[in-house]
Protein backbone atom coordinates (compact mmCIF):
# COMPACT_ATOMS: atom_id res chain seq x y z
CA UNK A 1 0.00 0.00 0.00
CA UNK A 2 1.62 3.28 -1.04
CA UNK A 3 1.67 6.12 1.48
CA UNK A 4 -0.75 8.93 0.72
CA UNK A 5 1.59 11.33 2.49
CA UNK A 6 4.35 11.48 5.07
CA UNK A 7 6.84 8.88 6.24
CA UNK A 8 6.68 6.25 8.97
CA UNK A 9 9.43 4.68 11.06
CA UNK A 10 9.24 1.41 12.97
CA UNK A 11 12.09 0.56 15.35
CA UNK A 12 14.04 3.36 13.67
CA UNK A 13 13.65 2.05 10.14
CA UNK A 14 11.75 3.66 7.30
CA UNK A 15 8.82 1.44 6.41
CA UNK A 16 8.96 2.39 2.75
CA UNK A 17 12.68 2.10 2.03
CA UNK A 18 13.95 -0.38 4.65
CA UNK A 19 11.26 -3.02 4.56
CA UNK A 20 13.45 -6.01 5.38
CA UNK A 21 15.05 -4.25 8.33
CA UNK A 22 11.60 -3.37 9.63
CA UNK A 23 10.38 -6.93 9.23
CA UNK A 24 13.37 -8.32 11.09
CA UNK A 25 12.56 -6.16 14.10
CA UNK A 26 8.85 -6.73 14.43
CA UNK A 27 6.47 -9.49 15.38
CA UNK A 28 2.97 -9.59 13.94
CA UNK A 29 -0.11 -11.31 15.24
CA UNK A 30 -2.90 -10.91 12.74
CA UNK A 31 -6.56 -10.84 13.52
CA UNK A 32 -7.30 -13.58 10.99
CA UNK A 33 -5.67 -17.01 11.33
CA UNK A 34 -2.34 -17.61 9.58
CA UNK A 35 -1.48 -21.12 10.80
CA UNK A 36 -0.98 -24.28 8.75
CA UNK A 37 -3.61 -26.74 9.99
CA UNK A 38 -1.77 -29.69 8.44
CA UNK A 39 1.28 -29.08 10.61
CA UNK A 40 1.53 -29.69 14.34
CA UNK A 41 1.76 -26.79 16.78
CA UNK A 42 5.48 -27.36 17.18
CA UNK A 43 6.06 -27.61 13.43
CA UNK A 44 4.29 -24.28 12.96
CA UNK A 45 6.63 -22.73 15.50
CA UNK A 46 9.70 -24.38 13.97
CA UNK A 47 8.72 -23.04 10.57
CA UNK A 48 8.37 -19.55 12.01
CA UNK A 49 11.68 -19.78 13.87
CA UNK A 50 13.51 -20.78 10.72
CA UNK A 51 11.91 -18.03 8.64
CA UNK A 52 12.86 -15.46 11.26
CA UNK A 53 16.37 -16.83 11.71
CA UNK A 54 16.00 -17.74 15.39
CA UNK A 55 19.27 -19.05 16.83
CA UNK A 56 19.03 -22.85 16.59
CA UNK A 57 20.85 -23.47 19.86
CA UNK A 58 18.16 -21.86 21.98
CA UNK A 59 15.24 -22.52 19.67
CA UNK A 60 13.82 -25.62 21.38
CA UNK A 61 13.95 -23.95 24.78
CA UNK A 62 12.29 -20.85 23.41
CA UNK A 63 9.52 -22.91 21.78
CA UNK A 64 8.82 -24.62 25.10
CA UNK A 65 8.75 -21.22 26.79
CA UNK A 66 6.15 -19.70 24.52
CA UNK A 67 4.07 -22.89 24.35
CA UNK A 68 4.03 -23.07 28.16
CA UNK A 69 2.93 -19.48 28.29
CA UNK A 70 -0.21 -20.20 26.29
CA UNK A 71 -0.72 -23.63 27.87
CA UNK A 72 -0.21 -25.64 24.69
CA UNK A 73 3.02 -27.48 25.46
CA UNK A 74 1.20 -30.77 26.08
CA UNK A 75 -0.52 -30.46 22.70
CA UNK A 76 2.58 -29.52 20.74
CA UNK A 77 2.55 -32.68 18.60
CA UNK A 78 -1.11 -32.38 17.63
CA UNK A 79 -2.15 -31.05 14.25
CA UNK A 80 -3.37 -27.47 14.41
CA UNK A 81 -6.54 -28.43 12.51
CA UNK A 82 -7.65 -30.35 15.64
CA UNK A 83 -7.38 -27.16 17.75
CA UNK A 84 -10.30 -24.99 18.83
CA UNK A 85 -10.45 -21.34 17.79
CA UNK A 86 -9.13 -20.19 21.15
CA UNK A 87 -6.21 -22.61 21.04
CA UNK A 88 -5.25 -21.43 17.56
CA UNK A 89 -5.32 -17.84 18.75
CA UNK A 90 -3.05 -18.71 21.65
CA UNK A 91 -0.67 -20.51 19.33
CA UNK A 92 -0.52 -17.48 17.03
CA UNK A 93 0.37 -15.23 19.92
CA UNK A 94 3.04 -17.68 21.08
CA UNK A 95 4.41 -17.64 17.54
CA UNK A 96 4.46 -13.85 17.38
CA UNK A 97 6.62 -13.80 20.49
CA UNK A 98 8.89 -16.65 19.40
CA UNK A 99 11.57 -14.54 17.76
CA UNK A 100 11.63 -11.93 20.57
CA UNK A 101 10.85 -8.93 18.39
CA UNK A 102 11.59 -5.29 19.28
CA UNK A 103 8.12 -4.18 18.36
CA UNK A 104 5.22 -6.57 18.68
CA UNK A 105 2.02 -5.75 16.83
CA UNK A 106 -1.06 -7.45 18.18
CA UNK A 107 -4.24 -6.93 16.17
CA UNK A 108 -7.00 -7.68 18.68
CA UNK A 109 -4.93 -10.47 20.25
CA UNK A 110 -7.34 -11.67 22.89
CA UNK A 111 -10.56 -11.64 20.91
CA UNK A 112 -12.61 -14.74 21.59
CA UNK A 113 -10.38 -16.02 24.41
CA UNK A 114 -11.39 -17.15 27.88
CA UNK A 115 -10.61 -14.78 30.79
CA UNK A 116 -7.84 -17.02 32.14
CA UNK A 117 -5.94 -17.05 28.86
CA UNK A 118 -6.48 -13.33 28.39
CA UNK A 119 -5.03 -12.66 31.81
CA UNK A 120 -2.08 -14.95 31.14
CA UNK A 121 -1.31 -13.24 27.86
CA UNK A 122 -1.42 -9.81 29.44
CA UNK A 123 0.82 -11.05 32.26
CA UNK A 124 3.35 -12.15 29.71
CA UNK A 125 3.14 -8.87 27.83
CA UNK A 126 3.69 -7.05 31.12
CA UNK A 127 6.75 -9.22 31.80
CA UNK A 128 8.11 -8.52 28.34
CA UNK A 129 7.61 -4.86 29.09
CA UNK A 130 9.51 -5.12 32.38
CA UNK A 131 12.55 -7.06 31.24
CA UNK A 132 13.08 -6.31 27.59
CA UNK A 133 13.45 -3.31 25.42
CA UNK A 134 10.25 -4.01 23.56
CA UNK A 135 7.33 -1.94 22.36
CA UNK A 136 3.97 -3.65 22.21
CA UNK A 137 1.44 -2.13 19.87
CA UNK A 138 -2.08 -3.42 20.46
CA UNK A 139 -5.41 -2.73 18.88
CA UNK A 140 -8.40 -3.75 20.93
CA UNK A 141 -12.05 -3.16 21.50
CA UNK A 142 -11.75 -4.19 25.15
CA UNK A 143 -11.49 -1.06 27.26
CA UNK A 144 -10.18 -2.94 30.29
CA UNK A 145 -7.25 -4.17 28.17
CA UNK A 146 -6.42 -0.67 27.00
CA UNK A 147 -6.10 0.19 30.68
CA UNK A 148 -2.88 -1.91 30.81
CA UNK A 149 -1.20 0.36 28.33
CA UNK A 150 1.13 3.29 28.81
CA UNK A 151 -0.41 5.33 26.05
CA UNK A 152 -3.71 5.04 24.26
CA UNK A 153 -4.72 6.41 20.91
CA UNK A 154 -8.42 6.50 20.14
CA UNK A 155 -9.33 6.32 16.50
CA UNK A 156 -12.55 7.42 14.94
CA UNK A 157 -13.22 7.36 11.21
CA UNK A 158 -9.57 6.70 10.47
CA UNK A 159 -8.30 9.67 12.48
CA UNK A 160 -6.54 9.64 15.84
CA UNK A 161 -8.87 11.73 17.99
CA UNK A 162 -7.03 11.33 21.30
CA UNK A 163 -3.54 10.22 22.30
CA UNK A 164 -2.36 10.17 25.90
CA UNK A 165 -1.86 8.07 29.04
CA UNK A 166 -4.98 6.39 30.45
CA UNK A 167 -4.88 8.71 33.50
CA UNK A 168 -4.59 11.87 31.47
CA UNK A 169 -7.36 10.77 29.13
CA UNK A 170 -9.64 10.06 32.05
CA UNK A 171 -8.75 13.33 33.76
CA UNK A 172 -9.54 15.22 30.58
CA UNK A 173 -13.04 13.77 30.51
CA UNK A 174 -13.31 15.38 33.89
CA UNK A 175 -15.61 14.69 36.66
CA UNK A 176 -16.21 11.76 38.96
CA UNK A 177 -19.68 10.31 39.15
CA UNK A 178 -21.24 10.05 42.62
CA UNK A 179 -24.34 7.93 43.04
CA UNK A 180 -26.37 7.71 46.23
CA UNK A 181 -29.55 6.12 47.43
CA UNK A 182 -31.47 7.85 50.16
CA UNK A 183 -34.74 7.52 52.09
CA UNK A 184 -36.24 10.33 50.01
CA UNK A 185 -34.62 10.82 46.62
CA UNK A 186 -36.75 13.86 45.70
CA UNK A 187 -35.76 15.65 48.89
CA UNK A 188 -32.13 14.69 48.31
CA UNK A 189 -32.18 16.16 44.81
CA UNK A 190 -33.71 19.35 46.09
CA UNK A 191 -31.11 19.54 48.86
CA UNK A 192 -28.26 18.98 46.40
CA UNK A 193 -29.58 21.89 44.38
CA UNK A 194 -30.00 24.24 47.33
CA UNK A 195 -26.96 23.23 49.41
CA UNK A 196 -24.36 22.51 46.71
CA UNK A 197 -25.82 24.07 43.58
CA UNK A 198 -25.63 20.73 41.76
CA UNK A 199 -28.06 19.43 39.15
CA UNK A 200 -28.78 15.82 40.14
CA UNK A 201 -30.27 13.19 37.85
CA UNK A 202 -31.92 9.85 38.46
CA UNK A 203 -29.79 7.16 36.84
CA UNK A 204 -30.05 3.41 37.40
CA UNK A 205 -32.60 4.19 40.19
CA UNK A 206 -30.06 6.28 42.04
CA UNK A 207 -29.45 9.97 42.51
CA UNK A 208 -26.47 10.77 40.32
CA UNK A 209 -24.25 13.86 40.33
CA UNK A 210 -20.96 14.83 38.70
CA UNK A 211 -18.26 16.45 40.81
CA UNK A 212 -14.59 17.18 40.12
CA UNK A 213 -13.27 15.25 43.13
CA UNK A 214 -15.67 12.52 44.27
CA UNK A 215 -13.82 11.07 47.25
CA UNK A 216 -13.41 14.48 48.89
CA UNK A 217 -17.02 15.36 48.23
CA UNK A 218 -18.54 12.43 50.15
CA UNK A 219 -17.86 13.74 53.74
CA UNK A 220 -19.50 17.10 52.87
CA UNK A 221 -22.44 15.19 51.53
CA UNK A 222 -23.06 13.43 54.85
CA UNK A 223 -22.62 16.66 56.76
CA UNK A 224 -24.89 18.96 54.78
CA UNK A 225 -27.43 16.94 52.84
CA UNK A 226 -29.96 16.55 55.68
CA UNK A 227 -31.57 13.49 54.14
CA UNK A 228 -30.68 10.01 55.52
CA UNK A 229 -28.26 8.28 53.10
CA UNK A 230 -28.33 4.51 52.66
CA UNK A 231 -25.36 4.07 50.32
CA UNK A 232 -22.89 6.12 48.32
CA UNK A 233 -20.64 5.08 45.46
CA UNK A 234 -17.99 7.08 43.63
CA UNK A 235 -16.97 6.25 40.06
CA UNK A 236 -13.84 7.50 38.44
CA UNK A 237 -14.41 8.02 34.73
CA UNK A 238 -13.63 4.80 32.84
CA UNK A 239 -12.04 4.48 29.43
CA UNK A 240 -15.52 3.73 28.16
CA UNK A 241 -16.47 7.26 29.19
CA UNK A 242 -13.32 8.54 27.51
CA UNK A 243 -14.15 6.75 24.32
CA UNK A 244 -17.73 7.92 24.32
CA UNK A 245 -16.59 11.48 24.89
CA UNK A 246 -14.24 11.33 21.88
CA UNK A 247 -16.11 9.16 19.44
CA UNK A 248 -19.49 10.44 20.51
CA UNK A 249 -21.20 7.10 20.02
CA UNK A 250 -21.04 3.57 21.31
CA UNK A 251 -19.31 0.86 19.35
CA UNK A 252 -22.56 -0.95 18.83
CA UNK A 253 -24.16 2.11 17.34
CA UNK A 254 -21.13 2.50 15.13
CA UNK A 255 -21.52 -0.98 13.74
CA UNK A 256 -25.21 -0.44 13.15
CA UNK A 257 -24.76 3.10 11.91
CA UNK A 258 -26.29 4.16 8.63
CA UNK A 259 -24.34 5.78 5.86
CA UNK A 260 -20.67 6.20 6.64
CA UNK A 261 -19.75 3.68 9.35
CA UNK A 262 -17.72 4.87 12.28
CA UNK A 263 -14.56 2.84 12.60
CA UNK A 264 -13.33 2.72 16.14
CA UNK A 265 -10.05 1.12 17.11
CA UNK A 266 -7.84 1.59 20.10
CA UNK A 267 -4.18 1.22 19.49
CA UNK A 268 -2.62 1.75 22.88
CA UNK A 269 1.14 1.90 22.95
CA UNK A 270 3.34 0.40 25.61
CA UNK A 271 6.85 1.57 25.78
CA UNK A 272 9.63 2.02 28.22
Amino acid sequence: MPASSGTAYVAGFNVATERDAVRRHIGLVFQEPTLDGYLSAEQNLKFHGELYGVDRAGAAERRKQVLDMVGLYERRHDLVQTFSGGMRRRLEIARGLLHSPRVLFLDEPTIGLDPQTRASIWDYIAQLHETEDITVFVTTHYMDEAEHCDRIAIMNEGQIVALDTPEALKAAVGKDRVQLSTDDDQAAMAALKSEFGLEAQMRDGQVTISVPEGAGFVPQLFERLGVPIRSVSVHRPSLDDVFLAHAGTTLRDAERGKGRPVHAGFPPIRRR
Binding site: G53, S100, R102, Q116, S120, Q127, D133
Partner: peptide
Protein backbone atom coordinates in the same frame (compact mmCIF):
# COMPACT_ATOMS: atom_id res chain seq x y z
CA UNK B 1 -0.07 -21.76 32.85
CA UNK B 2 3.14 -21.04 34.65
CA UNK B 3 5.17 -17.90 34.97
CA UNK B 4 7.57 -17.65 32.09
CA UNK B 5 11.21 -16.72 32.04
CA UNK B 6 11.92 -13.92 29.64
CA UNK B 7 14.65 -14.27 27.11
CA UNK B 8 16.33 -11.22 25.75
CA UNK B 9 15.52 -9.69 22.39
CA UNK B 10 17.54 -11.21 19.57
CA UNK B 11 17.25 -9.65 16.22
CA UNK B 12 18.13 -12.12 13.50
CA UNK B 13 20.73 -11.15 10.96
CA UNK B 14 19.90 -11.19 7.30
CA UNK B 15 22.13 -12.65 4.66
CA UNK B 16 22.47 -15.71 2.49
CA UNK B 17 22.57 -18.23 5.35
CA UNK B 18 19.23 -16.99 6.59
CA UNK B 19 17.76 -17.13 3.09
CA UNK B 20 18.94 -20.73 2.75
CA UNK B 21 17.28 -21.65 6.04
CA UNK B 22 14.04 -20.18 4.74
CA UNK B 23 14.33 -22.19 1.50
CA UNK B 24 14.95 -25.39 3.46
CA UNK B 25 12.09 -24.88 5.86
Amino acid sequence: MSATEISSVRVPRGGLGHEMRAVMT
